[in-house]
Design a protein around this nucleic acid. Structure first.
Length: 279
DNA sequence: CAAATCCCCTGCAGGC
DNA sequence: TGCCTGCAGGGGATTT
């Protein structure tokens, strides 16, 4: 389940294989919720473009092209964006119905490669943005979780009566945190996930921001978390799941005090915490 | 405006 | 063994 660290790992591995190369051919799957831009239109717009940059905001990736247009990508739950050889790409397209977008690339020296966007559940998204057009969904987004300041977080939480865990999942509050890292950061900050968001003091927001940065940076260094099928852009699984302290460990002992980890449901998301350390 | 609910999709675990 | 049900989850749309 790609959250900020998994998307950032994907970005870092993808950038050198994508930037500076020309898209010579585009193959798409059939129209679906995956395509915010119709696949035939998307293919026509991408063909011939040279990728100039690859950035990330929250869980979104944004590829920039030589004509000023851009491609917005979201990995959803099961999205995978990776490069491979042209031969491997042909094999994927022949046997796997979950590859929705394949780009054939050529570098200035003429070397060919491919970039595939595969997504089993199709919660992922691609959208083509004309030059100068900003995506509404990006405009609604709060500051990136790695850049938000304690003061900004405190202000964003001020009027919210929802549980802090739910607020962390709200991408308009801060961008990039999903279910895993919300639970992990709250554990590190010793804040119970059920605490009404507006009751956090500025000092507690300072602790929480520090915890968020710590857990997100550590996860990026570990290559992300691989729960079921996340793979980085080179196909390598992440290892941060081995460092999860509470997520996915209900009933197991808290690494700090040994109390069994509790599980509750908040905003239809399973939520894990230590009832003793976080109160 | 805030908050709750529903829905998109597929694979897999658990029950019988 | 095999079928069926339920669950997992990001996030946008809709409803309260």
């Amino acid at each position: 389940m790609p959250e900020l660290p998994e998307v950032e790992v994907t970005r870092r591995r993808l950038a050198p294989a994508w930037i500076g190369r020309r898209i010579t051919r585009v193959v798409t799957g059939p129209p679906s919720y995956f395509f915010l831009t119709r696949p035939d239109l998307l293919a026509a717009r991408l063909r011939g473009r040279v990728t100039t940059d690859l950035t990330r905001h929250g869980k979104y990736l944004l590829a920039a092209f030589d004509d000023g247009s851009r491609l917005l990508c979201h990995l959803g739950m099961t999205g995978q964006l990776f490069t491979c050889t042209s031969a491997e790409a042909r094999r994927w397209l022949g046997v796997d119905p979950h590859v929705h977008l394949a780009l054939a690339l050529r570098d200035p020296a003429g070397a060919r490669s491919s970039l595939l966007f595969r997504d089993v559940r199709k919660f992922g998204k691609v959208q083509w943005l004309a030059p100068g057009v900003t995506a509404e969904r990006l405009a609604k987004m709060g500051p990136d979780a790695l850049r938000i300041t304690p003061r900004a977080l405190h202000e964003a939480l001020a009027q919210r009566g929802i549980p802090i865990k739910t607020a962390l999942l709200d991408q308009s509050v801060l961008a990039g945190v999903g279910n895993i890292y919300a639970d992990e950061a709250l554990f590190l900050a010793a804040v119970p996930p059920t605490r009404p968001a507006r009751t956090l003091s500025l000092a507690e927001c300072e602790t929480l921001v520090r915890s968020l940065r710590r857990v997100l940076q550590a996860a990026i260094r570990a290559g992300g978390s691989t729960i079921s099928d996340f793979r980085g852009a080179d196909g390598a699984p992440g290892s941060y799941q081995d460092n999860h302290r509470v997520y996915g460990r209900p009933g197991l002992p808290c690494p700090t005090c040994g109390t069994p980890i509790a599980r509750v449901v908040l905003a239809q998301r399973s939520t894990h915490f230590c009832p003793r350390c976080q109160r």
